[in-house]
Every structure is written in structure tokens, then in C-alpha cells.
């Protein structure tokens, strides 16, 4: 019998087999926008990590005589702020807090939200209703207001603003995880796994997780940009870190008063927030299309 069916094989031109991730990588490598965004983000992240060694000057050192110098002033390539501190150094150092406040809440929310969403989506029924209706309550408030309200209640500070942002991001991630899980659960391969006698836990581990985490991860990457902006917003309102810590949102706030004196310098923290968040956004779009196997 083997001989009689084998002829079906002959002309099937063997394609060099590649794994899922290597084919994702191959697609990514052809996508110049995403690569550019990755490079920019890498530069920002590395300079934040190595800030003490990279920054040309002390970000806290003030000077009354050289306040609000223009961009391009010798010794201060990006000028100085309203207290005469070196902008370049402050921006490099500011990246540390801004990125921590942007990324940590999303990671926390990714863990908690995926867990809730997968449980809700896979188990369904009453549990789904309890989880999803609770999430809906949080959804009813605009995310900015919610973040401000929670931060306000908890008090200012780095940890508190991370906690409040985490709470803000759990509902959207739970929703995405739940809807992806629900659609995966109804696919034939999960039915087939059930038909081979597998239990719920095994099915989640082998068949659901891998298919749900990808899209949820991509969605969460997109949230990082929102998170950076919200974190900056909290600092701007005085609910995040306190002066004189360098943080992009806070810098934007304190430089606000000097906007008429030297608008270019005052806009720099905003430019950093903009570049970082748009890079995260475009990168998540790129990841999404690269991870779409069917396309």
C-alpha cells in the first residue's frame, strides 16, 4: 500500500522547512519601517540604561547664568532648561524613568490581563460573565481620568503611578485575550484536541496559549506608547515622580512656563515622547503583520 500512495509524493517540491519564528523573522527583515523603529528604540533604551556613562553632564547641576540656552550652544548641544541644566543629559536620564513608567505597567497588565482573559474565554459561562462585567466597569471611565483618579487616591510617586497605570491597562488586555481565546477555542484544532481526550488544562497549555499570547503581545506593544504618554501626563500633573528627577513628562511640565522664551528647547521632551511612542506603535503594527501566518 505504501508504494501505491507514495507516487503522490514525488512532485511535491520540498520547501526548505522553516519554523514559525524564523519565518516571522524573515518577514520582519524585509520591513524597513519596523527595522528603523527597532533601531531607534534600541538607541533610546540603551542610552537610558547607560545614562550615567553616556550623558555629557550632570543632569541635576543647575546654573543661574546659562538658563534656557538655544539648541546648538557650545557645550550644550540641546541647550539648557529653565534652571540651566543640560537638556541632552536630562533627556538621556529622563528616558530611564519614562521607559520604566511606560513599560512596567504594560508588562504587569499583560500578565494579569492575559490570565484573566484566557480563563474567561476558555471556561466561559458564569466565570466569563463575572470577569468581563467587572472589566467593563473599568472600561466605563476614560483611561486618563481613571489613571488620574487612582493615582490621586494612592498619592504621588513612582510606584503608585505604576500601580495605577497597571490597573488602567488590565481591562483592554483582558478583553483582547478573552476575544482571541474565544475565537481560538472554537477552532477545529481545539475540537480535535478535545476529541483526542485531552483535558482543559492540557488544551490551554498546548493549543491555546501559543495562539493567544502572540496577538495579545502585539496589542500590548501598542499600549506601551499610550502608557508612556499617560505616565508623562501623570508626572506633568504632579502625580508621578517629583522634581528635580528628570522625567520627560515632568520636564515638559516645568518647561511649560518658558515656552515663549525658548520654544524649541521646551518642546524637546515632547519630541522624545512622540518619537518613542510612535516607534512602539509602528513596531507593533509591523509585528502584527509579520506574525500573521496566513498572509
Amino acid at each position: 500500500m505504501a508504494e501505491t500512495t507514495l507516487p503522490g509524493l514525488v512532485p511535491d517540491v520540498p520547501i526548505a522547512s522553516r519554523g514559525y519564528w524564523s519565518s516571522v523573522f524573515r518577514r520582519l527583515s524585509g520591513d524597513w519601517t519596523t527595522i528603523l523603529c527597532l533601531v531607534v528604540l534600541l538607541i533610546i533604551i540603551l542610552s537610558a540604561v547607560f545614562a550615567p556613562w553616556i550623558a555629557p553632564a550632570d543632569p541635576y547641576k543647575t546654573s543661574v547664568i546659562r538658563r534656557l540656552k538655544d539648541i546648538g550652544t557650545p557645550g550644550f548641544p540641546l541647550g539648557t532648561d529653565e534652571l540651566g541644566r543640560d537638556m541632552l543629559s536630562r533627556l538621556i536620564h529622563g528616558g530611564r524613568l519614562s521607559l520604566v513608567m511606560g513599560i512596567t505597567p504594560v508588562i504587569n497588565a499583560l500578565i494579569i490581563g492575559s490570565f484573566l482573559g484566557i480563563v474567561a474565554g476558555f471556561v466561559g459561562g458564569k466565570i466569563n460573565m463575572v470577569i468581563m462585567r467587572t472589566v467593563d466597569v473599568f472600561y466605563a471611565f476614560p483611561s486618563v481620568l481613571l489613571a488620574i483618579a487612582i493615582s490621586g487616591a494612592l498619592g504621588a510617586g513612582l510606584v503608585n503611578s505604576i500601580v495605577s497605570l497597571t490597573i488602567v491597562f488590565i481591562p483592554p488586555i483582558t478583553r483582547v485575550a478573552e476575544s482571541v481565546t474565544t475565537s481560538v477555542r472554537n477552532l477545529d484544532f481545539v475540537e480535535a484536541a478535545r476529541a483526542s481526550g485531552a483535558g482543559g488544562f492540557t488544551i490551554i497549555r498546548v493549543h491555546v496559549l501559543g495562539n493567544v499570547l502572540g496577538p495579545v503581545f502585539v496589542f500590548a506593544t501598542g499600549l506601551i506608547s499610550v502608557s508612556i504618554i499617560l505616565a508623562s501626563g501623570l508626572s506633568f500633573l504632579g502625580l508621578g515622580v517629583r522634581p528635580p528627577e528628570p522625567e520627560w513628562g515632568l520636564m515638559l511640565n516645568t518647561l511649560r512656563q518658558s515656552i515663549y522664551v525658548n520654544p524649541w528647547v521646551c518642546a524637546l521632551p515632547g519630541v522624545m515622547i512622540f518619537i518613542t511612542s510612535i516607534c512602539f506603535n509602528l513596531m507593533s503594527d509591523g509585528l502584527r503583520s509579520a506574525m500573521d501566518v496566513r498572509a
Binding site: 501505491t4 507516487p7 503522490g8 509524493l9 514525488v10 512532485p11 511535491d12 517540491v13
Partner: peptide, 15 residues
């Protein structure tokens, strides 16, 4: 009876 078949699959249009 055994069905007569065309062996293999249609070619890859990229090559």
C-alpha cells in the same frame, strides 16, 4: 475500484 489520480499537486506559481 481504485480511482485513477493525477499524482502530486499543482506547481508553485513563483517557480
Amino acid at each position: 475500484q481504485r480511482l485513477e489520480t493525477i499524482a502530486g499537486a499543482p506547481p508553485n506559481l513563483a517557480k
